[in-house]
Design a protein around this nucleic acid. Structure first.
Lengths: 221, 221
DNA sequence: AATTCATCATGAAAATCCTCTTGGAAGTGC
DNA sequence: GCACTTCCAAGAGGATTTTCATGATGAATT
């Protein structure tokens, strides 16, 4: 689960990032609006935690900006100010939740979890690429030849990542990182090969190509 | 059926919450706009009862705010003021119904029921999915092989939620949230497993699938 | 073209972890 | 107090994940 943390207080950022990682998130930290914008331009985050008071502007502006761009990931705002007006303006800008400093990490974690949960309650999203339809809510796939097939958790994570980033070669290391956010080594393992093989068993061999020495890619046409 | 009650008069809140719970609602109580905002940010309510006069603002602002966020649960407004202007402004803000204090609990209950019925669009109180019919009024189910079977309250809540959101994987955490109001923290418990097992005993094993590590889903076909 | 070597594919066994089941304790309402 | 519901805990069972061994494939070099 990719998460963008925008927080300019180094100490706080460090500590938060640490505990978020411990809880299975893949965390990228930005310390300015500029940095956050540039990160968000290239990566696709499923969740954002944004501090309001930043050196180069207000986090609220960034939120508004993202929403204008139709980025719809859940956003949680952090702020020292605890006034009702701030809350309203934060939520009206498009943030989904609000937490005032100081707070307990446990509460942040609980709220992030809740946000993701709520998200999953919305209209079921079905991603279709090259004849393969991935049902996020039902954790299943179907193709023309395969009317319905449920996947295990790991199979689903891998396929989901590949289909969200089609036509790009992903190295085995990179895919391992996607599958196991918090684990460390995992270098000497052929897990990616094993799971690619399983996916191909469901989907056929054409959709996921091997680039020898480079990695794998999901072809979109 | 999750319901958020926003009422700052402790006594009234207590008593209302009690009778709402007796009528099958899962009630969370908030005593300020701030508290309500914070609850609503993390939980998904299917119904809200909002008092207008609150310590930190008007309930109407909160209603307007929710509607701006595209939250579409039915909202019933409570108020001591019985002027025509208030009614108009309440309904225009996005509330669905209006009740002036003092009122009889029975009337509140009746109006809530009406709101839910209107929402669901269906006059019938029987939900049928994949051969299973759930009788909301009688708290019972029937299938082809099982002409009639009454469920306990918890069994019913769980099955109702699953049948209202079929073909989606619901994590155990999420289901626990649906079964119990916020106060208790039954995180480490196997209650969901236990109740799923009971439902399967009634309905057979095919209807409720397990996604190991992910959750459960009710299949609609 | 043949050889070599690194990389990849695959089936099956092993290990791990989640889920199911069960019986009884604790709580509730009549 | 009795019947019923809800909750809890522990062991059995089973699905998923991981590892391992072996064979296949492809690129590079001779």
């Amino acid at each position: 689960m990719r998460l963008l943390l925008l927080e300019d207080d180094d100490l706080l950022a460090e500590s938060l990032a640490e505990s978020l990682k411990d809880n299975g998130y893949l965390v990228d930290v930005a310390d300015s609006i500029k940095a956050a914008t540039s990160l968000a331009a290239t990566e696709c985050y499923e969740l954002a935690v944004v501090d309001i008071g930043l050196p180069d502007g207000s986090g609220l502006d960034l939120v508004a900006h993202w929403r204008k761009q139709k980025r719809d990931m859940p956003i949680l705002i952090l702020t020292a100010r605890d006034t009702w007006e701030d809350k309203v303006s934060g939520l009206e800008t498009g943030a989904d939740d609000y937490l005032t400093k100081p707070f307990h990490e446990a509460e942040l974690l609980a709220r992030l979890k809740a946000l993701l949960r709520r998200r999953s309650g919305s209209v079921s999203q079905i991603l279709t690429v090259n004849g393969v339809s991935l049902d996020e809510a039902g954790q299943s796939v179907c193709t023309e030849s395969l009317p319905w097939c449920s996947l295990t958790a790991t199979e689903f994570r891998l396929l989901r990542y590949l289909m969200h980033h089609p036509d790009r070669v992903h190295s085995k290391d990179h895919l391992l990182d996607q599958l196991y956010a918090l684990e460390q080594d995992a270098a000497e393992s052929n897990l990616v090969e094993v799971y690619i093989a399983r996916l191909r068993r469901y989907l056929g061999k054409a959709l996921i190509q091997t680039r020898r020495g480079q990695g794998y890619l999901f072809v979109s046409h």
